[in-house]
Design a protein around this nucleic acid. Sequence first.
DNA 1: TGACTGCCCATAAAATCCCATGATAGTCCA
DNA 2: TGGACTATCATGGGATTTTATGGGCAGTCA
Lengths: 160, 160
Amino acid sequence: MAVFLSTYVNKVDKKGRVSVPADFRKVLSGQSYQGVVVFKSLQYPALEACSADHMEQLSDSLEALDLSNEDYELYETTIFGGSVQVPFDGEGRIVLPEHLARFANISEEAAFVGRRKTFQIWEPRALSVHEDVMRDKARSRDVSLSKIIAKASQLRGGLS
Amino acid sequence: MAVFLSTYVNKVDKKGRVSVPADFRKVLSGQSYQGVVVFKSLQYPALEACSADHMEQLSDSLEALDLSNEDYELYETTIFGGSVQVPFDGEGRIVLPEHLARFANISEEAAFVGRRKTFQIWEPRALSVHEDVMRDKARSRDVSLSKIIAKASQLRGGLS
DNA sequence: TGACTGCCCATAAAATCCCATGATAGTCCA
DNA sequence: TGGACTATCATGGGATTTTATGGGCAGTCA
């Protein structure tokens, strides 16, 4: 299964164009629509992107989820109203709509971060800050986890 | 590209004409009737719009629902009675009937918000207020788009 | 008459296409 | 094994096409 993996940093030119990493384009190459769907992340100052097909899957499963009217409205507005279909040019570049680029603070460079079914687009420095935070979080969680494991092992008479 | 996506803001000229975004027109281009059906939103101070074909589907599915007479009346009156067929001019513009424009408070500019099978037309500032509310709601419930997408993938057995 | 319709054309800005270049990596063959 | 040839890629710039937006003008309905 082709998934979006690893991180690439590409330049944004004067016209606002950025190359989508070739590896990412390969993942999308079988798709009917040659381009991506981009929308604002709800958690981070970054953009989320996926294939149009995946977006349709999402929309179909939204109907299947049996949501309350209010929730349905919520998704419909945040996702579909807020997302933009962005086509590739002949060289596999996209132009980020101005309001999306501004939201993620992207001007000179853009970092593409693979997240399996989707990928994110970050301003490179914001991404590195974010990664540090995540690493710290993971570290602290690891510590407490090993403590818990050690404790559990003691209670059960140690590791065998 | 079969669905209405993203948000566009266009100007209303002195004659009351607004360009329907080119991407939206492309979605409608295969249709027999070159124009849209517009009616008042039941929830918001905004207008709903879709293709004439989709309106017919809607009416068909209403009949299939086997509604009570009262409910049927309700829909007939609010949606079908209140809806207007609005044709494109040569440049892909429409003129919003005066009572509909007034209902949504549209005068200078109109925001077109894609909602897959339909789209909404808002007064831009009213829209941005509405979006803020929705966004806060989503955040407070810890709704994450990637979670939804992951959930959607699960339901459909993942990408293959 | 006069507002409104539907058509036509004009234009500036923006989006898109097309071709060029340098860099990198990968391959093939002696 | 090493060097030349090739393919791919990110990047840049110019040319072309779309698009949104504006205005004009003739028919029409009230």
